[in-house]
């Protein structure tokens, strides 16, 4: 594609405009996070605090056992991501590349699990986890991930459906068994969408709030998201530490995204070639 100067200017101005919308809340959160209590609420709002208090970040981190929370969040995030990658690639492959009896019904069933409102299955699920003795452990947050999630399976299936059928037929004629075809041919092709799923899952689990809230009881088990929410009491919001920890909490996912970008950029077709 040739890019003219005019074209460039238009693209840049649109990019900048969107950036304003996406970035401003972060800037404002940062400004809020380094203000003093008195400055935060003053009106008209100050855009540059008199004395930027970077120590607010340290204070916020130290006000709760965030080291423990960080460790718990890491355990849950890493394990669920591994679980999702293994299970979803298998299941999506099964749905996308084979024809079998009841496939459509089963796939609809799979999709329908995405639509179940969380409120009502939560209490029965709680009872079940309680029966297993899993309440106040990280297990309810981790184990289900090893059985796949509808969202990820669906997403992966859409990518797999878009790969020409000749691929496995050729391999079959060469005598490869079904699992070898999956493992040796398709897994490498799926690098981009699997990276995408990993990124999405990391962010989802990292930020998950209701799951940990319901299944975890004491602070030694808490995750980062719960710690962040603990700055919000019934009557008052501690706005400075909330903003500070929100910004701290986005660092790990952003790092992951920065590394993952490379693989996502390759796309799927890139790896077929």
């Amino acid at each position: 594609m040739k890019i003219t100067r005019k074209h460039k200017i238009i693209v840049y101005s649109i990019l900048v405009l969107f950036s304003l919308y996406f970035l401003f809340p972060f800037i404002w959160a940062f400004i809020t996070a380094i203000k003093s209590e008195a400055e935060v609420f003053s009106f008209p709002p100050k855009f540059v605090p008199d004395v930027p208090l970077l120590s607010n970040f340290i204070d916020a981190w130290n006000s709760q056992p965030f080291g423990t929370y960080f460790k718990n969040s890491m355990i849950v995030t890493v394990l669920t991501t591994i679980g999702q990658l293994i299970s979803c690639s298998l299941v999506a492959y099964g749905f996308a590349r084979y024809d079998f009896k009841y496939k459509n019904i089963l796939f609809m069933l799979l999709l329908s699990t995405m639509m179940i409102p969380w409120d009502v299955t939560m209490i029965p699920l709680y009872m079940e986890f309680n029966m297993f003795g899993w309440i106040n452990t990280l297990k309810p947050l981790i184990v289900p991930a090893f059985f796949g999630s509808a969202y990820n399976i669906f997403l992966l299936r859409q990518f797999l459906m878009n790969i020409p059928k000749d691929l496995e037929n050729a391999a079959r004629i060469d005598g490869a068994n079904e699992f070898q075809i999956f493992y040796k041919i398709f897994l490498p092709i799926m690098k981009a969408p699997l990276t995408l799923i990993a990124v999405l899952n990391i962010i989802l689990v990292w930020n998950d709030y209701l799951g940990p809230l319901i299944y975890l009881n004491d602070q030694s088990k808490y995750t980062m998201a719960l710690g962040l929410a603990s700055f919000q009491g019934v009557h008052e919001l501690q706005i400075i530490p909330i903003m500070a920890m929100t910004l701290v909490m986005i660092i790990p996912p952003v790092i992951v995204f920065a590394f993952a970008q490379k693989y996502i950029v390759e796309g799927i077709s890139g790896s077929i070639k």
Partner: peptide, 22 residues
């Protein structure tokens, strides 16, 4: 720009509501 556009998707729903409410 790619990172900027993606950045908000990294923030938890709880934090999103607090930031915008603010």
């Amino acid at each position: 720009f790619r990172t900027i556009f993606y950045l908000p998707a990294v923030v938890s729903g709880v934090a999103v509501s607090i930031i915008w409410g603010w």
